[in-house]
């Protein structure tokens, strides 16, 4: 734990990049071994979607996530006591040349889920960030 300078929390957990990479690698390789019986490199996009489908309540398409100012390609919606719902911008699925963006968006959104699994292990008092209702991570 390190002090949090944003003022949102008294302190927060911190990992080195190599530690995060190891956590990510462990997650995807164990899924690949369980599902395919071996590690497939490069990781197929469908493996990432299946990983999300395993852990989220739903993986859906979303339209009009972006506006004139912000480009948003995915978000993860959390409701207390329920699995999250992940939505990915429809255009990423429809436009083949954006496959890399699709892959990074899928893994980014899965990261929100992974965060949500890890954070409750730490005893720190978060401030309410998003007001009432479901919280979303874009």
């Amino acid at each position: 734990m390190i002090p949090d300078r944003t003022g949102r929390f008294p302190e927060r957990p911190h990992w080195e990049i190599r530690e995060l990479e190891q956590m990510c690698e462990d997650t995807i390789t164990s899924f690949l071994r369980d599902h395919f019986g071996f590690e497939r490199i490069p990781v197929p996009t469908e493996a990432v979607t299946m990983l999300i489908e395993r852990d989220a309540a739903d993986l859906d398409l979303a339209t009009n996530l972006s506006d004139d100012i912000h480009e948003v390609f995915g978000f993860t919606q959390f409701e207390r006591g329920q699995k999250p719902v992940v939505k990915i911008a429809r255009e990423l699925w429809e436009q083949r040349h954006r496959n890399n963006r699709l892959r990074t968006t899928l893994t980014h959104e899965y990261g929100h889920y992974a965060d949500s699994r890890i954070m409750p292990r730490f005893s720190f008092r978060p401030a309410r960030l998003m007001g009432r209702g479901p919280e979303m991570s874009a």
């Binding site: 197929p44 979607t49 859906d60 699925w93």
Partner: peptide, 24 residues
């Protein structure tokens, strides 16, 4: 995976249905 399903389902034009169509 969704991609495995759409690969086996074709429209009348002979092209596989899209992932967004399957999700819909």
């Amino acid at each position: 995976a969704g991609r495995e399903v759409v690969a086996g389902v074709h429209n009348s034009d002979g092209k596989p249905i899209s992932i967004p169509f399957l999700v819909d």
